[in-house]
Nucleic acid binder design. Structure first.
Length: 203
DNA sequence: CTGCCGATCGCCT
DNA sequence: GGCGATCGGCAGC
């Protein structure tokens, strides 16, 4: 792996960032016993003030304000009162944009993820399902509201994003975003075509 | 202060 | 394919 992505990577148009985040690695709690490395295989772009499906559509409210701040920070929120969803803030300071992390493939730290997903379940979770879906991804990586605002470009952050040393040429599938009721026609969902960790519905 | 509703998930039919 | 769980943000009164 080459190293953590810097702020310049995120200070670009959100759609570009979303696309290029595919095959990048999420590195959580690096250097600890809880270290997890996972490859991003599915993301969605949310375009701020010009996107009615974005939480930033109504401007810098207390919750969405983080998306108007500097790029390279986490925006985490609670969905349906149960699950957490994590986004990476994009664009320059003052412009809202974010990429929702929808699914990743576990490369390292499978046991840690498995513990967080719940050991008392009736059935054993298949490996590709461990971080499949935005809620499951947050749960498996231990990301919650306390991580909201985290600077992933900081050396001390428990969450980092790394670019792979060799960018493999994967086919990128593109389609409508999941679970929204506004701007459903925009193809702002991106995924590694055919990867088993991509959530439903399949692209 | 109240009421609505959601960038979801897993179990049930 | 349907639905219940569960709670914070936000708009409106």
């Amino acid at each position: 792996m080459a190293g953590p992505l810097g702020r310049d990577f995120f200070a670009r148009p959100t759609v570009q960032v979303a696309r290029s985040l595919l095959t990048c690695r999420l590195v959580v709690d690096r250097g600890t016993v809880d270290e997890v490395v996972a490859t991003l295989v599915e993301v969605e772009a949310y375009l701020g003030l010009r996107d009615p499906a974005s939480h930033a559509y109504r401007g810098p409210t207390p919750r969405a304000g983080i998306m108007f701040g500097p790029p390279g920070h986490l925006y985490v929120y609670l969905s349906y009162g149960i699950h957490h969803c994590a986004n990476l803030v994009c664009e320059d300071h003052g412009t809202a944009g974010a990429v929702l992390l929808r699914a990743a493939a576990v490369e390292r730290g499978e046991e840690v993820v498995r513990e967080r997903r719940g050991s008392g379940l009736a059935r054993v979770i298949p490996v590709p399902d461990l971080l499949r879906g935005p809620g499951n991804l947050c749960r498996g990586l231990g990301i919650a509201l306390g991580d909201n605002g985290l600077d992933v470009c900081s050396a001390t952050s428990r969450v980092e994003v790394w670019e792979p040393a060799v960018r493999s040429r994967v086919a990128v599938a593109r389609g409508p975003r999941v679970g929204i009721s506004a701007a459903t026609e925009r193809p702002l969902r991106f995924a590694v075509r055919g990867h088993p960790a991509v959530s439903r519905p399949a692209l």
